[in-house]
């Protein structure tokens, strides 16, 4: 899916560079990475372990400042090199959603409360937050389990709740780090299809770091990361056959 020309991209990253250590211990994790994800677009990020995927993801999540480069989210410049141009935590709260390999649900909150808390930290009144959280769980097909603690949910249900939490504040960008790694192939595919649904129906940019080559057809584009450099491939089938 292409970006709407009037809407700024979900995220623009230009000439991103991240260096760990100094002198002899210097490791370049990201080399001059530039990418753009439009709203309503779902993009996959592939690459071997240690290639820099997670570093790029955490830099985009505003929790790991880059050494150089700029990050703009929803048209708002947020990072200029290591310097944050916004209150990173407040910005994450309003504009970003996260999904991880493990669902990372808060164990002492029910499914509903795990979604509700994301709304409440964004100053949504509890009653309204509860209503919206229920709607999201319904949208993702887990509303019957709304009052269950995470322990009582299956892996797939937990991941759906985590996606609902990521969607809670209508973020412009959702960052997912290997969200299907802990799921079987059938559930993994269902979750990936959910991400695609979210991107297309809720008009959010979605970046998914994955190793699962069986779901590449779901992505609009593939970012291939190797040694901290990004290559963009438009046709997932090409990537699949190349590996």
């Amino acid at each position: 899916m292409s970006a709407n020309s009037e809407t700024p991209p979900a995220i623009e990253v230009s000439h991103l560079r991240k260096v760990y250590g100094r002198g002899h211990t210097e490791v370049v994790a990201i080399r001059d990475a530039t990418l753009q994800i439009a709203r309503g677009e779902i993009v996959g990020m592939l690459g071997p372990s240690g290639s820099g995927k997670s570093t790029i993801l955490t830099a985009m999540a505003l929790i790991n400042p880059p050494t150089a480069g700029q990050i703009t989210i929803s048209g708002k410049p947020v990072m200029d090199g290591p310097r944050a141009l916004v209150d990173a935590r407040a910005f994450r709260r309003r504009h970003l959603g996260f999904v991880f390999q493990k669902p990372n649900l808060i164990p002492f909150l029910t499914a509903l409360e795990n979604v509700q808390i994301a709304l409440e930290v964004n100053d949504i009144a509890p009653r309204e937050a509860r209503k919206r959280a229920l709607e999201l769980l319904d949208y993702l097909g887990v509303s019957p389990r709304a009052n269950n603690l995470p322990d009582a949910l299956s892996g797939g249900e937990q991941q759906r709740v985590a996606i609902a939490r990521a969607l809670a504040n209508n973020p412009s960008l959702i960052l997912a780090d290997e969200p299907t790694a802990a799921l079987d192939s059938k559930l993994g595919r269902q979750v990936m299809e959910l991400f695609a649904k979210v991107a297309h129906e809720r008009h959010a940019g979605v970046l998914v770091v994955t190793h699962d080559l069986r779901t590449l057809d779901i992505f609009d584009r593939i970012l291939d990361v190797e040694d901290g450099a990004i290559q963009v491939r438009e046709n997932p089938a090409t990537v699949t056959s190349a590996r």
Partner: peptide, 18 residues
């Protein structure tokens, strides 16, 4: 015991007061 939950709260933007 709940350090990951606290980290998650920070990631989703919870304020220090929370």
């Amino acid at each position: 015991d709940k350090i990951r939950d606290i980290a998650l709260l920070k990631l989703i933007g919870a304020r220090n007061t929370v």
